[in-house]
Design a protein around this nucleic acid. Structure first.
Length: 338
DNA sequence: AAGGCGGTCAACCGCCGGGAT
DNA sequence: CATCCCGGCGGTTGACCGCCT
């Protein structure tokens, strides 16, 4: 059983706040501060849950909140931070003075993710959707097998191939000095992945020849929807392929390398991106998923990415100065293209 | 004019981590 | 050490609004 409710729901008002309620809450917080939200409703004369009061205050009544539209710089920062942190909205919002996590989350869900998708960028992985399809193709010719170059020397023996494929930003980040230099093991891993990638079909639209004509959907024999999903994926490849090549050309050499990539072991990247693929391609159970996540966390520590992110977040000025589109990858450049 | 529809955003819900006891 | 409680978080919901047919 979960914990009991924080308040007596029968006697608690829900729904939109009235100006009178806002005034009461504001009057109370301005004189008493915001400690112990559980007692706030009673002391402020409100028939609201303490959590509701806290939410109303932090998201709407708190001083110094911005209520105007997001600026281009804010958009850039959100995209960049989302690429690195995923949906950790509070962390992202901390880097945007006057914005709340709810603001950022809503803005992402309603505007930015859509904008990215329209540009052919997967808003979860921040990689070109066509490139994701390409990676799935690579999965088909390299089924799960013991990995010779396991980043932590063994515990991830069955790490499936896509887990090692890079986030689109990674190489650009290395090049820009925003990520620590790759270790020899990581570089060697890149060579292996690059070779596998080279073995994969050269173009998303290429008709596969004889021999290795395996598709990722072949791994979904039990899934009645697999054929339809594969067909849809292929269609997306065709539609997005053109964009993919144009975007790669426009983004310059650095991002181009990232796209076709030679991998790094950015944990955040592999985590958000390929966790789902593990389940699809390998049909792995919870154990495999847990192993995969452990490997990501290990990688995080080994590469220093976790430390890097911590330092980055501690120094907003540094980050703001680094957000030029060419360095920060697909999302930003494309958003700025508007 | 009216109903349908999609977008936006405030608010709610349930879970989790950490401090207090 | 175990339990309780609170604040915080991310995901989701639903009311509202404007546009379209």
């Amino acid at each position: 059983m979960g914990r009991p409710p924080c308040c007596d729901k029968a006697n608690v008002k829900k729904g939109p706040w009235t100006p009178e309620e806002d005034a009461k809450l504001l009057a109370y917080t301005s004189t008493h501060g915001t400690g112990n939200w559980t007692n706030v409703p009673q002391r402020a004369g409100l028939k609201r849950c303490g959590k509701s009061c806290r939410l109303r205050y932090t998201n709407y009544l708190r001083p110094n909140l911005k209520h105007e539209n997001f600026t281009q710089e804010e958009e850039d920062l959100i995209v960049t931070l989302h690429a690195m942190l995923g949906s950790r909205w509070s962390l992202i919002a901390n880097q945007l003075p006057g914005r709340t996590d709810n603001d950022v989350k809503n803005y992402w869900n309603t505007k930015l993710s859509k904008k990215l998708r329209q540009r052919g960028i997967d808003p979860i992985t921040h990689r070109p959707i066509a490139d994701l399809m390409h990676s799935i193709g690579a999965l088909a010719i390299r089924p799960p097998q013991p990995l010779a170059l396991s980043p932590n020397g063994g515990s991830t023996a069955y790490l499936p191939a896509p887990a090692a494929l890079p986030l689109v930003h990674d190489v650009a980040y290395h090049a820009a000095g925003m990520l620590p230099p790759m270790t020899p093991a990581q570089q060697q891993q890149q060579v292996v992945i690059a070779r596998v990638d080279a073995d994969a079909p050269a173009s998303p639209t290429t008709e596969h020849g004889q021999g290795q004509e395996l598709k990722w959907s072949d791994f979904l024999a039990d899934d009645a929807n697999a054929a339809a999903a594969a067909a849809e994926a292929q269609q997306q490849q065709v539609v997005l392929g053109q964009y993919h090549h144009e975007a790669a050309a426009a983004a310059g050499a650095g991002s181009g390398v990232a796209v076709h990539g030679a991998g790094s072991s950015s944990a955040a990247a592999a985590g958000g991106d390929d966790g789902g693929i593990v389940g699809v391609g390998g049909g792995g159970g919870d154990d495999r998923a847990a192993e995969f996540i452990d490997a990501i966390l290990d990688c995080d520590k080994e590469t220093g990415v976790d430390q890097f992110i911590a330092e980055l977040l501690a120094d907003p000025a540094y980050y703001a100065g680094s957000s030029s589109s060419s360095e920060m990858g697909w999302g930003i450049g494309l958003l700025n293209a508007d």
